[in-house]
Nucleic acid binder design. Structure first.
Lengths: 268, 268
DNA sequence: AGGGCGCGTACGGGATGTGTAAAGACGGCC
DNA sequence: GGCCGTCTTTACACATCCCGTACGCGCCCT
């Protein structure tokens, strides 16, 4: 085994090769011009690998290829592909373990190709971290469509929602108070506001859905558990408590709005 | 058949909630704590819908159900599901159009179920915005695995950086007023218009079917329940109320049109 | 013309939902 | 044991909503 070459890729002028900047946060496109999607094809059947590579290149994808798991993992690290096509039947390692190894440090979408069509195999692969699973033989057009779907999800996420985000994105501010979602801290008028766990849990749900009305049923369900009906007045008590601590005029709330008969809403 | 009564399914009374749970995101609550994943099941085959609902609830998912496209889109806006299971063979709208309509303002993962197994259908659905595609009959375990895969992608993002599935969309605007479906809020002339739950429920149905005539029977059924005939004048009363609050000249409505003998229509 | 019929409007009482305060219950911690 | 913070429960005042009834209006129809 391990008859694999080093890189499978030898594509036309691609890849910033050696001198590429690291961009450890995951940003990929460093070069100018086309933001080509980078695909890593992992397939030990040389014929199928060739077919995939040719088809993908024809669609203007930037293709790398690997014929064994070791190379695949290395290329996944060094080439930072946008998506990985992974055959589960590799010679040197169990496919599931490849996914697990990859998921230890990388979240790139993984589209599994496999000859095994049983539910068991699919479930194991998906739960190990795969994003999709296709059984051979498959339609090339369908593969391309699933590829588009997988990459679309990445492109759509605003890019600041990726891994780093340790940044300051998790603080919600109003004219009256500020809420630090990660630090679980609330400040108002220069002082820290003490919230009980239940108060915090309730506030968190509302703050995380700014401008959205959250039904009482959902609030009760998420804070107190599924077996609580709206007949109790936990919500009323705790909303009053929150308003007392956060609003300038608790009897005329500006931020924690109640929509009678429907639910509550946090207004930014 | 099997028209949805008010909201989706609502089977209650089961499981007195688990005790303290762990929630990997760090929240250390003592009670309900687990932010249950919310699934919207869209399936017109009542039997299959039932099976899915039961299975998902047994897995501790929070399930809503819709049996037609219009209801599905409405619930997608108002209930904020974390993932949608969508049957493509709905009675009132083409499945592809449902996905497109949804994607106009919402990014929630969509897992398509369809009896059609051709590549063409899969490709159209995926390119319209679906995240995955399964053909009937399918293995329930595989469905659950794909569901986990779809939701895992969401859960992995830091939870605060994602705009709660939807962007700022889900707002319907006319020359006279604007309706925020997710916030359940109506603004007109710079002021918030207070709607009662019944008024809102009625308006919601009409707004979610722009330009199409909704029969009185259906409105009565969805708002007041299945046992109400068109002999009552609830509809008249509440339509008058809505017009009073939304129309510039309530006696000559421009947006909430009545089609004598048939029903009502929202004109955009 | 008159009488159905469908639609819009007005109004009051009972029912329901909400805010608020305060007291009991529970558990942890010196 | 006694203190303390938190959660739960009860009770009540108040606002609002829903519903039922009643009435006026325009239209079509035989």
């Amino acid at each position: 085994m391990a008859l694999s070459p080093t890189h499978g890729s030898r594509q036309s002028g691609n890849v910033p090769a050696a001198g590429s900047r690291r961009a450890s946060d995951g940003t990929l496109k460093t070069k100018g011009s086309t933001p080509m999607t980078r695909v890593l094809v992992v397939e030990d059947d040389a014929q199928l690998a060739r077919a995939l590579t040719i088809n993908l290149k024809a669609r203007k994808y930037d293709v790398d290829a690997a014929y064994d798991a070791a190379t695949a993992l290395r290329l996944a690290a060094t080439e930072q592909p946008d998506v990985i096509l992974l055959d589960l039947g590799l010679p040197d390692m169990d496919g599931i373990d490849v996914i697990r190894a990859l998921r230890g440090w990388n979240r790139v979408p993984v589209l599994v190709l496999s000859a095994r069509s049983g539910s068991e195999d699919k479930i194991r692969a998906l739960d190990a971290g795969a994003d999709d699973y296709m059984t051979k033989p498959f339609s090339m057009d369908e593969l391309l469509a699933r590829l588009r779907a997988a990459t679309r999800r990445i492109e759509e996420t605003p890019a600041h929602a990726r891994p780093s985000t340790g940044a300051a994105g998790a603080v919600v501010t109003t004219d009256e108070f500020t809420v630090d979602l990660m630090g679980k801290k609330v400040r108002r008028g220069g002082h820290d506001v003490r919230l009980t766990p239940t108060e915090w849990h309730l506030l968190e749900i509302l703050i995380c859905n700014p401008g959205v009305l959250v039904s009482q049923q959902r609030l009760l369900k998420e804070v107190w558990g599924p077996s609580y009906s709206t007949k109790t007045n936990y919500l009323r008590v705790y909303m009053a408590q929150l308003r007392r601590k956060l609003e300038a005029d608790p009897s005329h709330p500006r931020y924690l709005i109640t929509e009678p008969g429907m639910g509550y809403r946090f207004e930014a």
